[in-house]
Amino acid sequence: MLEIKNLHASIDNTKILNGLDLSVNAGEVHAIMGPNGSGKSTLASVIAGREDYDVTDGEINFQGNELSDIGPDERAREGIFLAFQYPVEIPGVSTTNFMKTAVNQIRESKGEKPLDAVEFLKLMKEKMKLVNIKQELLSRSINEGFSGGEKKRNEIFQMAMLNPKLSILDETDSGLDIDALKIVSKGVNALKSKENATVVVTHYQRLLEYIVPDFVHVLMDGKIVKSGDKNLALELEEKGYDWIKVKN
């Protein structure tokens, strides 16, 4: 589904990604771990097509298409979803309104007719249950004054609404209390299928107990320096990143 080869990316002439390779197939869950500042969020943004980054070399293929000429909105419509590490506030725009605009624009791009108010509300109600989010929160300006946990939960709600092929969750677990972590993980697992794939970026092994990865990768200095199964995460937790540095 996602095939990244020799990806080099920079921002403001600072190189961040240096020859990164990653391959994700449908039905898989991948975890990406790595020290602060190693380029995890950068990778997520580059996959999503953020234009501030220059891709100086390499390529990203998604479902067989090379993405370099495809804008971020079109990538989203093709099924790439990013749950932001720091979700953005948009004053005066409710999550409901935000999602209605998104859902209908995606439908329109597929030649489907927009959902009317009743159909949309039905869809919302169904997805709200999945992540146990309250109507009241969805009527407020998106992310404005939300607690850290509410923001993350709201991201997963949006993921449920948009039903993407590839979801990248950037530190969705940070800021969640234990109950919320369970709820959010349950939501993510419920959305998992043979047709879609999930990439979770995290610092903590704990999340991976709930969302069990098929592969764990370690990102350091803009590259994947080690890959393994879920046990790699346990090993990292125990030994820290220096252990890998030393080994290299």
Binding site: G49, D73, A76, V88, A102
Partner: peptide, 14 residues
């Protein structure tokens, strides 16, 4: 903000 626009774009909104 560029951030706000990117957030929208990422959800498929042009």
């Amino acid at each position: 903000g560029e951030d706000q626009i990117f957030y929208c774009l990422q959800r498929g909104i042009d």
